[in-house]
């Protein structure tokens, strides 16, 4: 199976702080992964690394068949990241924001309308400035932006945070639909009940390394990050 994310002892530094201290992880195409771990474990860093936004200090990191060390730009166009910051312009309206990001990703007006309909942004909100939206509403706009990208790999950082029940259901629905259409999804979440129902595998991360990796359906615990070819990669140190 060709893996979408392939990390071997990846070290990733934020400033001088090693946010990832040698993470090893494989994610297959179409899988839904739940990333869990305490605050500051390195979940967000792992997601940003997979998006090609952070330099790899050492180790191997390949996403969608591209080495992140050399051609991160190739990766960036094909992934979608929902981060803590929603990445919206406060002074622009909802429609303006979605349109801008859609056009940047070479989408058109049809994409914008479809995406906004799918996340349930009513017409009432379309012309409201983002500055006046609530946190949950901003998340919905960010989800619409995510949909316009037609990405092959979704990286969702706490997608349920700040959303009401309908909003969380919407996130789950979108993830299922995406997985069905072949998109690979990595979700970092503290909302374990919801996310385990969604995920194929649960990957635990702590102190910047992957500490546990469990297949949800079989309950089988793989060696951390399925290290068949390299059994001592994560535990050796």
């Amino acid at each position: 199976m060709r893996s979408v994310v392939h990390l071997r002892d990846a070290v990733c530094v934020l400033g001088r702080f090693p946010a990832l201290a040698g993470a090893t992880l494989d994610v297959g195409a179409g899988e839904v992964i739940l990333l869990q771990g305490p605050n500051g474990a390195g979940k967000s860093t792992l997601l940003r690394l997979c998006a090609g936004l952070l330099p790899v200090q050492s180790g191997t990191a390949e996403v969608l068949g591209h080495d992140l060390g050399t051609d991160a730009r190739q990766v960036r166009r094909r992934v979608a990241l929902l981060g803590h910051g929603v990445g919206l312009y406060e002074d622009l309206t909802v429609t303006d924001n979605v349109t801008f990001w859609a056009r940047a990703a070479a989408g058109d007006a049809g994409d914008v309308a479809a995406a906004m309909a799918r996340v349930g942004l009513e017409a009432r909100l379309a012309d409201v400035e983002v500055a006046r939206l609530s946190a949950g509403q901003r998340r919905r706009v960010a989800l619409a932006v995510l949909l316009t990208r037609h990405a092959e790999l979704w990286l969702l950082d706490e997608p349920h945070a700040g959303l009401d029940v309908q909003g969380r259901d919407l996130v789950d629905r979108l993830v299922r639909q995406a997985a069905k259409s072949g998109v690979t999804v990595v979700v970092a979440s503290h909302d374990l009940d919801r996310s385990t129902a969604l995920a194929d595998r649960i990957v635990s991360i702590a102190g910047g390394v992957v500490t546990d990796d469990v297949d949800v359906r079989s309950g089988r615990r793989g060696e951390p990050a399925g290290t068949i070819d390299d059994p001592e990669s994560a535990d050796a140190r």
Binding site: A21, G37, A206, G207, G208
Partner: peptide, 16 residues
């Protein structure tokens, strides 16, 4: 950072 991980290795069993 890695010792941090060692400490928390006990935790995942509960979580999983």
């Amino acid at each position: 950072r890695r010792s941090e991980a060692e400490k928390s290795r006990a935790v995942p069993t509960i979580a999983t």
